[in-house]
Simulated assay, not measured.
Amino acid sequence: MNRQHRLGRSRVSVSPLAFGGAAIGNLLGEVPDEQAAQAVDAAWESGLRYFDTAPHYGLGLSEQRLGQALRGRPRAEFTLSTKVGRLLDPVTGPVGDDLANGFAVPARHRRRWDFSAQGVRRSITASLERLGLDRIDVVYLHDPDDHAEQALDEAYPELERLRAEGTVGAIGIGMNQAALPARFVRDTDLDAVLLAGRYSLLDQRGLTELLPLAAERGVGVVIGGVFNSGLLATPRPGATFDYAPAPEQLVSRAMEFKAVSERHGVPLRAAALHFPFGHPAVSSVLVGVRSAAEATDAAELLARPVPAALWTELRERGLLGPDVPVPGGAGARDAGAG
């Protein structure tokens, strides 16, 4: 895991396995402060050097916790990314909770969409304060699904200026769809795309246009959601796919993936983590972590060799198409096994 991959054409490097910071923002349940700190410590001990967060995650809690946990580490030895597009406005009066947005935190702030140039500057200033760090290595435009034109016309040029000033090292877009990021890759000088859930063993929509375009343009891709919110972690009836109950057909397909993986002595989660590295555009795979055990487990899974025969059988059984690149193929990245 000591290997580093360059993120596209930028000067920023990332570890093959990235720490996803949503969980330590109390995603779907409370995580005690000590547990969050231990999760970051275990990730560091396991060789992870790329950490991702966002103001959205726990209304700033993830940024605060991640910044505090990383502050004592040598700044040159890790890469940190956060996001812009949602400003946090203080709430006056009685405070409820933020569970409607998925986070078990007091709703002391209200999110407000803002992809203006001024909003980008304000967001980054606030993130630096919460993080307590001197710079941000990568800034992603966060989920501009309904704000594409403002993100393209106002937020992106401002991020270009910040990159030129040296305030940020690289700029990108982070989404759970592939079409709009592909437009940004075509029309801008992005360094990176963070693509969640659209390039996994079960869902390869990112392969249609985005990933080939990113490889052609020298844009680095970070893949999140490789377990598709649970189905590829523990395939079973009732498991979730994209945060909703998985259709029976998808459950059956996931069970087939599991059976093939286990025949080759590989846990399905390991195969799911390794799979994206078959594509040359992929620089890192991001996994949400809420405990030390989860950080260690993810690192161990990625360090576990996956035999070429597993990918061959998946193709023979029609579970992967003949044109889907797999690890070990021409141009594939080294996931850092060993």
Score class of each variant (00 low, 15 high):
Asp187Lys: 14
Thr188Phe: 14
Asp191Gln: 06
Asp191Ser: 14
Ala192Phe: 03
Leu194Trp: 09
Gly197Gln: 11
Tyr199Met: 09
Gly206Thr: 00
Thr208Ser: 13
Leu210Cys: 11
Leu211Asn: 08
Pro212Phe: 03
Leu213Lys: 08
Glu216Pro: 07
Arg217Gln: 04
Gly218Asp: 11
Val219Ser: 14
Val221Pro: 05
Val222Arg: 02
Ile223Val: 13
Ile223Leu: 02
Ile223Tyr: 05
Gly225Ile: 01
Val226Asp: 06
Val226Asn: 07
Ser229Asp: 08
Ser229Asn: 12
Gly230Leu: 06
Pro237Lys: 09
Gly238Trp: 03
Gly238Thr: 06
Phe241Arg: 13
Asp242Asn: 14
Tyr243Leu: 12
Ala244Asp: 12
Pro245Trp: 00
Ser252Val: 15
Arg253Asn: 07
Val260Thr: 06
Val260Glu: 01
Val260Met: 02
Ser261His: 14
Glu262Lys: 01
Arg263Pro: 10
Gly265Asn: 14
Leu268Ser: 14
Leu268Gln: 06
Arg269Cys: 04
Ala271Ile: 15
Ala271Glu: 03
Leu273Thr: 07
His274Thr: 03
His274Tyr: 04
Ala281Leu: 04
Ala281Ile: 00
Val285Asp: 09
Ser291Lys: 10
Ala292Lys: 12
Glu294Val: 13
Ala295Ser: 14
Ala295Ile: 00
Asp297Phe: 09
Ala299Trp: 07
Glu300Arg: 15
Leu302Pro: 11
Arg304Pro: 05
Arg304Met: 14
Arg304Thr: 05
Ala308Lys: 08
Ala309Trp: 05
Trp311Arg: 01
